[in-house]
């Protein structure tokens, strides 16, 4: 389980990283936290001519506040997200999700940008950024552009990133009075979820205003449950649960068949609603 040969370069800064990438070609890969990438290379599932290590690029890590948003650098590690006070206050779903990802050693290295760019459909962060209406900031040779999280995840390990485009930051509207929760069902602590949900809403009595219901582990990308969200906005939980029949079309996998995933999706929505109301 040794990776095939590849070349390595350590980028000094963002322009250097982009220049290296251009030099190595489209199949070269960005090495962020490496917690999925290096495993994949070792398994020889992935193959790459070259890795561009951006761990030493300045200003890619850290959380800052600006106006009604917080900005999370792409290289901010899970462990930092779990303890950062700005994240806890303004994007509590991210803070809640971070400790759910694998284990301390993975959290110490793994980065939010890496997780989003990898786009594993069973991962927590992609669903989080969709549910929180985040904007993803990407940098290419032509400059910077912004992609709404809802448009970023195109399919299984597939994103809206163009060739030679690098995710640099995630900007998330401050939660304000909106409440957020992440719930997931895992066989073992730290596992990928059988089914997971991120629920964000403006809780007013029975209604969940502007509800965002986003699932992970039930499709080839984060799945937005629109029907359920509309029902929750009317305060109709049983209609929301019913709406999931149309909202979700989960493929079966090793953790369960489609009907099981659908069933668990209903259970977990109810639990997320309870959690949100209890906040």
């Amino acid at each position: 389980m040794k990776p095939a040969q590849f070349a390595y370069a350590r980028a000094k800064d963002l322009p250097h990283a982009l220049a290296l990438w251009a030099e190595a070609g489209e199949d070269a890969q960005i090495l962020a936290g490496g917690q999925s990438l290096i495993a994949g290379l070792g398994l020889r599932l992935a193959d790459t001519p070259a890795l561009i290590d951006i761990n030493h690029v300045p200003d890619l890590a850290g959380v800052t506040e600006s106006g009604d948003r917080i900005r999370i650098g792409a290289m901010t590690r899970h462990a930092e997200l779990a303890r950062n006070p700005l994240v806890a206050e303004h994007a509590p779903a991210i803070a809640e999700a971070a400790p759910l990802i694998a284990h301390p050693a993975i959290q110490a290295r793994g980065t939010i940008g890496g997780s989003l760019a990898y786009a594993d459909p069973a991962a927590e962060f992609p669903a989080c950024v969709v549910a929180l209406d985040a904007e993803l900031v990407v940098q290419g040779q032509g400059g910077e552009r912004r992609i709404p999280a809802a448009d970023f995840f195109l399919g299984l390990y597939e994103t809206a990133l163009e060739p030679f485009e690098l995710l640099t930051a995630i900007e998330i509207p401050k939660a304000g009075r909106r409440r957020q929760t992440v719930q997931e069902l895992v066989r073992r602590h730290g596992d990928y979820a059988i089914v997971g949900i991120v629920l964000a809403a403006d809780v007013q009595g029975d209604t969940l205003g502007a509800a965002k219901v986003v699932y992970f582990g039930v499709g080839d990308a984060p799945v937005v449950a629109e029907g359920a969200a509309r029902a929750l906005e009317q305060g109709d939980v049983s209609a929301a649960l019913k709406a999931l029949n149309d909202d979700l079309d989960p493929p079966g996998d090793l953790t369960g068949g489609p009907e099981t995933k659908r069933h668990l999706a209903r259970v977990i929505l109810q639990r997320a609603i309870n959690a949100l109301r209890a906040q």
């Binding site: 495993a39 398994l43 284990h103 993975i106």
Partner: peptide, 23 residues
């Protein structure tokens, strides 16, 4: 060698890391 078992855990710059998931 795929980051699951933890047998290769070491300290790097004060953090615990998986030695198999770092070059």
């Amino acid at each position: 060698e795929h980051g699951v078992c933890g047998a290769c855990t070491v300290q790097v710059n004060g953090d615990v890391v998986r030695g198999c998931l770092m070059l």
